Simulated scan of single mutants.
Amino acid sequence: MTKDFSGDRIILSDLGFFGYHGVMPEEAVLGQRFFVDLVCGVDLGQAGRSDELEQSISYAEIYEVAKAAFEAQRFKLIEAVGQHIVDRLFEAFPGIRWIEVRVRKPSAPIAMVAGEAAIELHRHRDDR
């Protein structure tokens, strides 16, 4: 069955973090920059009508949870980093129906002239 990722959403793009995630031993020592993009499916109808934050989810709080999840532990795979962020967001915010997360690693230790390595996860709350 195809999951529905439509509807209202809260978007946070280009969240920059410094971390020690990676398979290579030097990544655990030197660390590197990572960027995270989040799209959270949330019903924003009440917030749009009321203009009250209590009817929405604070993107500042989403950021804080994502940051804490990113920094909580060292992972070898950025897939695991992304999944950990998703899990923590679902735990913290019952109103989030689905999440798309992209974890980008612009300085991945591979011989690329430009660009970045990245993963993108699409998760629905009811798949947990």
Rank of each mutant, 00 (worst) to 15 (best):
L44H: 10
F75N: 10
A108S: 07
V103K: 00
I57N: 00
A66L: 02
R33A: 14
D127L: 11
M112S: 09
V113A: 14
V101I: 15
F35D: 04
V39C: 08
H21Y: 08
A111C: 02
S13Q: 13
Q73P: 03
V23P: 00
L77H: 04
D87T: 11
E100P: 00
F34W: 09
F75P: 03
A69D: 08
I78L: 04
I96M: 01
I11Y: 04
V103H: 00
F75R: 08
A28Q: 13
E26N: 04
V81E: 03
A66H: 00
A80T: 12
E116S: 13
R33G: 06
V113T: 12
L44C: 12
E91Q: 15
V113I: 09
K76N: 11
E71S: 10
G48I: 08
D37M: 05
P109H: 13
L44S: 07
I96P: 01
D14Q: 15
Q46D: 14
V36I: 15
L89A: 08
Q83V: 00
L77V: 05
E27S: 03
R97A: 13
R97V: 06
M1I: 15
L77K: 05
I85T: 06
P109S: 10
A114S: 15
A108Q: 02
V101K: 03
A28D: 02
D8V: 07
H122E: 05
Q32K: 12
I10W: 01
K105H: 04
I62T: 05
I96Y: 00
P106T: 05
V86S: 03
G48Q: 10
S13C: 02
V36R: 05
E100D: 11
E71T: 11
I11R: 14
V101T: 11
R9L: 07
I10G: 00
S50A: 11
G45D: 15
L15Q: 10
E61D: 15
T2S: 09
Q73R: 15
F18E: 07
Q55W: 08
G48M: 09
V29S: 07
A117Y: 00
A47Y: 06
V23I: 13
G7A: 14
I119V: 15
F70Y: 10
Y59R: 11
D127C: 11
G48L: 08
L12D: 02
L89K: 09
L38N: 02
E120G: 09
R128C: 09
G31C: 09
D51T: 05
P109G: 10
D51M: 05
L12N: 01
R128Q: 14
D51W: 04
F35M: 07
F34N: 04
Y63W: 10
E71P: 01
R88S: 13
M24Y: 14
A108L: 03
A92G: 10
L89I: 13
R102Q: 13
E52H: 12
I78W: 02
Y20H: 11
A68N: 12
D126E: 15
